[in-house]
Structures are given as C-alpha cells and as structure tokens.
C-alpha cells in the first residue's frame, strides 16, 4: 500500500468537496436524518444541503426505542429543529427496527459504505470496530459494499473487548488510546478471548504491570484479530477505519503497525454509519 500519510477529512465531518457525491445541490433546506442504533452507542446525524448541521452520540442503554428518540431529539435540538422538520429519516444499526419514526431501515454496511465514500472516496477497504462486532468490508468506486466479513459472536476483536478492560483497569473508555501511547514496555497477552484476557489483565496488574503497558498489549491482541479478518477479505488501498473503536488512537496505531499501512481516519469515526444513513435519506428526497 503506497499511501503512508494519515489523512483526516477536511472541514470537520462534512468533508466538503467539489464533487457532487451527494444530493444537496439539487434541493434547498430540506432536512434529513440518519439514526444508527448500535449495541453500545446510538448516533444521529442531521443534514441539509449535503452538509452535516448537527449530530449526537449517546449510550444505547437497554431501551433502543428510547435511545432512538433521545439521540434524534438531541441532534435536532442542536440544530434547533424537531422531528416534524425532517423530510426523510433512515435508520440503521443493531436496533434499527426500534426507530419508530424512520422512513426506512438500511443495513449498516451499506450506510458505512455510503458514509465513508462521502468522506474518503478513495477508500476501498473499511474496518468498522463496533461495540459488539468488528466488520471488514470492501467498497467499490461508488461506496457500495461488495464483500464483507464479520467477527465471531464472541467479544474478541470488538469494542466490547476494550469496554471490559476499561472496567478492569478502572479508567474511562476514552482515555485508553492516549494512555496506551505512553507504554514503554508492552505486555504480551496469550489470548484473544476477551474473557481470558480479562483474567490475564488482572494477573498482570497483580504482577505490577503498568496500565499503559497492559493496554498496549491488548491493542496488539485486538489488532492481530482484526488483521486476520483484513487478510481474509484481502486488503485493497485505501483502507479506512470507522466505528467507536476507531476513537482509540492506540488501537488505530496498532492496526496500522500490523497491516503495515496508514489508515484513513474520520474526525468522528463513530457517526459514519449515521452519516451514510442521512446521505441515503437525502438521496430519497432528491428522487
């Protein structure tokens, strides 16, 4: 993979572009939304004229229907809008069926593909590190998913792995990345299983290992799992990483090390599926 420079999309999340890859140029001030109800986090993106005007992320909790209403409500409030202002809403994610106010549900890989195409048109391989599963998929020159792999049902290789370890180490999830980057003596783990890794982490704490070294080791383990999935599907540059797990810079660095290439990383990787859902909603109203 020739590309070695990590690229962040320009101008925040909107990824402004001179190309017309969206729908906004055809219509004026029509508001649409994408709602992604993931197993761990819910995300909402509100757009108008092919631009993100607001978004919100919050834990899904145990009531997906309520989460959908709340996350949409928060995103709309930021834009000083309400549900009745939306011309079209697309739902996606594990709890998409619970978004009672959506016009349509679309699979998350289609939304991720659409969202990543908007942000990084050159991306052909996408790693989505979600709360419950990690997916690796390939997209074509139009952002359509043409092949995909999903991690096994167990927590190995998913964001859940990091949540478990954050709890064991008594640190905030969002601090994992920066803390792990301070590691000077990475601890190597013998397992990719989240349950066994939890036990192993506790053992290493008892042995006096530093938190940052444990985290660096776990990133290495998680990255190895993701690497096998990428190799199975066959990497094609450019490769992007999205999902909540991509907010962990230590994990992203570990994956880059394992794959031997730089990854395209959105400013806000957690909302790419919701963004794609909103873009699909926009296409609906423009047609």
């Amino acid at each position: 993979m020739g590309r070695k420079t990590k690229v962040k999309n320009r101008e925040g999340l909107g990824g402004k572009t001179t190309e017309n890859r969206g729908w906004g140029s055809k219509i004026a001030m029509v508001y649409i939304a994408g709602i992604d109800i993931g197993s761990a986090f819910s995300k909402a993106v509100v757009m108008a004229k092919n631009e993100i005007i607001s978004y919100h992320v919050m834990p899904s909790g145990g009531d997906y229907k309520l989460a959908a209403e709340q996350v949409a409500g928060e995103a709309l409030a930021k834009a000083k809008l309400s549900l009745k202002d939306l011309a079209y809403t697309v739902a996606t994610g594990y709890g998409a069926a619970n978004v009672s106010f959506s016009n349509q549900a679309v699979t998350d890989i289609s939304c991720q593909g659409r969202g990543i195409f908007y942000l990084f048109p050159s991306a052909r391989t996408v790693i989505d590190i979600g709360g419950q599963f990690t997916k690796v998929f390939k997209v074509d020159e139009r952002g359509r998913a043409i092949a995909f792999l999903q991690s096994e049902k167990c927590a190995a290789g998913s964001g859940r792995f990091l949540q478990i370890i954050a709890r064991v180490l008594q640190i905030d999830l969002e601090d994992i990345g920066d803390l792990s980057m301070k590691s000077q003596n990475r601890v190597d783990f013998n397992t990719g299983c989240a349950v066994f890794a939890e036990s192993e982490a506790i053992s290493r704490i008892a042995e006096g290992a530093a938190k940052e070294d444990i985290l660096a080791g776990l990133h290495r383990t998680l990255a190895a799992k993701i690497q096998t999935m990428v190799e199975r599907i066959g990497i094609e540059p450019d490769c992007a990483v999205v999902g909540g797990g991509a907010k962990d810079i230590g994990l992203v660095k570990s994956i880059e090390e394992r794959l031997g290439c730089s990854l395209l990383l959105p400013e806000e990787p957690q909302i790419v599926a919701a963004l794609g859902a909103a873009l699909i909603a926009g296409e609906k109203v423009s047609h």
Binding site: T107, D108, I109, S110, K135, F137, D140, R144, A145, I146, A147, F148, Q150
Partner: peptide, 10 residues
C-alpha cells in the same frame, strides 16, 4: 441482510 446488499452491489 448485509450479504444481500453485497450481492445486489456486485
């Protein structure tokens, strides 16, 4: 569902 999406795209 995801597989059907990829079939359609291909």
């Amino acid at each position: 569902d995801a597989f059907i999406d990829t079939l359609e795209a291909v």
